Simulated scan of single mutants.
Amino acid sequence: MQDLSKELTLVTVTYNSAAVLAAHIDSLRDGARSPMPRWLIVDNASTDQTDEMLKKYGGEVELLKNAANVGFGGACNIGIAASKTRYVMVLNPDTQLSESALQKLLSELKSNDAAIAGPALEPVDDHEVEAVDWLVGAVLLFDTEKMNAIGYFDERFFLYEEDKDICKCANDAGLKVIQCRNVSIPHVGGGSTVRTKKVNEFIHFHKGRSFALYALKHGLPDDVLNNYVRDNTRRKWIALLTFGRSRYLRARAKLKGVNSLNN
């Protein structure tokens, strides 16, 4: 059995995630039979009870508090830079861990000579391990000896598409990205702030901005971005004419995100 305390560092990125963070930590802590990996909580300037709640864990976790919200990828980069082990796993705070899942995912990463590995985030019927184009960023395990040469998250992606981007960069560099459906790390969801009108507009702004950034960065055909703009323009006006205010605001925010790259 691998010694996770010496081989692996966990990096959980939080933003107003106090409601789910304790369950996330306890999911591994309560069932662990061996010393736990070093666990960094990189917090993006939360204003909830995250700091206070973490005090009960003492030295079992380490809080790295950002003065401002630097986005998911930026916070991951901070945690990865602070890690000292070859293997680093970045996590959403609404995932449920187990020692056996960490052991298995690390074993698969090593045996498949991969740079990035991800588990099944929900129940699946097959247990295949296969090379893939990209993985969902809720759980990503990195071999830093392979990844250091190409770097990690592009911090221009504040929210969304950063997982797709880093996997494409790895694949384009000839590194292997694998999905291990024989490993289960459930992604419960709902790990961030309450969805107010302002938050929803912020989220959809970054969906649009990140979609456009990915398309431009990787030279996707012009039709990909043009169709995205056309579809959201149509949705915006249909929603306006049918009094679908929330749909209108979502489409408008996405278009603002796309247009922000021209400013």
Rank of each mutant, 00 (worst) to 15 (best):
G137D: 12
N69S: 13
T233V: 08
R181L: 10
I116M: 05
R38Y: 08
K207Y: 12
L121K: 07
M53Y: 01
V224A: 04
N92E: 13
I203M: 14
K254R: 15
A32K: 05
I238V: 15
R209T: 01
I238Y: 08
D51V: 12
L28C: 04
D94E: 11
A67S: 14
L121H: 11
A138N: 14
I166S: 00
L64D: 00
V224R: 03
G257C: 06
S98P: 04
Q103M: 10
N226D: 14
G174D: 03
V183N: 00
L216Y: 02
T14Q: 03
R38M: 05
F157N: 02
E128I: 09
A18P: 02
K197M: 04
T196L: 07
N92K: 04
V194Y: 12
V136S: 06
I238F: 03
L97V: 13
N262T: 12
N92A: 11
A131H: 06
R252L: 10
I80F: 07
L8G: 02
V224G: 00
I238E: 13
S46K: 07
V258E: 02
Y87M: 08
D223G: 04
E201I: 02
Q2Y: 15
R33W: 01
D3E: 11
N232F: 13
V177P: 00
A120S: 15
R195N: 11
E162T: 00
A101K: 01
N92Q: 13
P93F: 12
D43K: 01
A131F: 00
N263D: 10
R234I: 15
T9F: 02
I80N: 02
V229L: 14
M1Q: 08
D48E: 07
D163I: 02
D30T: 09
N262P: 01
T9V: 13
K164R: 13
M36P: 09
I150W: 10
V42S: 08
K236C: 11
L106C: 06
I80W: 05
N148A: 09
R156Y: 02
M147L: 12
E122S: 12
S100Y: 04
K256D: 13
E52V: 03
V229N: 09
L261A: 07
S98Y: 05
E201D: 15
D94S: 12
K65C: 10
D222P: 00
G59F: 03
V61M: 05
K198H: 06
L106H: 05
G191W: 08
S246F: 02
D43N: 13
F157S: 02
C76W: 10
G31Y: 03
Y248A: 10
L105E: 01
L102Q: 11
H127Q: 08
P221Y: 10
G58Q: 05
P221Q: 11
S184Y: 15
T233H: 05
P221W: 12
S184T: 05
D133G: 13
D126G: 07
L40A: 05
D165G: 00
A120V: 05
C180G: 06
L63R: 14
C180S: 14
D231R: 13
A212S: 12
N92F: 06
R250Q: 11
V70C: 08
V129N: 10
K254G: 08
L28M: 07
G191K: 10
V61Q: 02
T12A: 10
N263S: 12
P35R: 06
R86Q: 15
F243A: 15
Q2L: 07
N263W: 09
P93G: 14
E155I: 09
L241C: 07
A138M: 07
V183P: 00
F142K: 01
